[in-house]
């Protein structure tokens, strides 16, 4: 499954419907975001059917970025049925994200 690109209008419904979700806030002018991208794509494949792995472009969806208080990108937010329970800021190895997913499946 490819990574889902979420818009503001569909965001709430999408994360509420997911028992577990991981959302990567990014922008195309952000070098570390580009580096994180392959990791997020790999996780989307690895957790297909188990968790929603999505991306939000902070330039296109500034309201969402603001609502989540995203102040540095990449920021990855973890949610259960739409409620945030953890977040990771900055470029981190894949295990940092898969650990959170594994523990909350």
């Amino acid at each position: 499954m490819a990574v889902k690109h979420l818009k503001t209008t569909e965001f709430q419904a999408a994360v509420e419907a997911a028992p577990l979700a991981m959302v990567d806030f990014w922008a195309d002018w952000c070098g570390p975001c580009k580096m994180l991208s392959p990791t997020v794509e790999a996780l989307a494949e690895q957790y297909e059917g188990k968790a929603l792995v999505a991306k939000v472009n902070v330039d296109e969806e500034p309201e969402l970025a603001r609502a989540f208080g995203v102040m540095s990108i990449p920021t990855v937010v973890f949610l259960k049925n739409g409620r945030e329970f953890d977040r990771k800021v900055g470029l981190l190895p894949a295990q940092a994200f898969s650990k959170v997913l594994e523990e909350n499946l």
Binding site: A27, W29, G31, P32, D59, G69, M71, S72, V89
Partner: peptide, 17 residues
Amino acid sequence: FLGRGVSYCATCDGMLY
């Protein structure tokens, strides 16, 4: 406050401010 207002890169995070 790193990532919560503290940043090391103006060109990376500037747009968020």
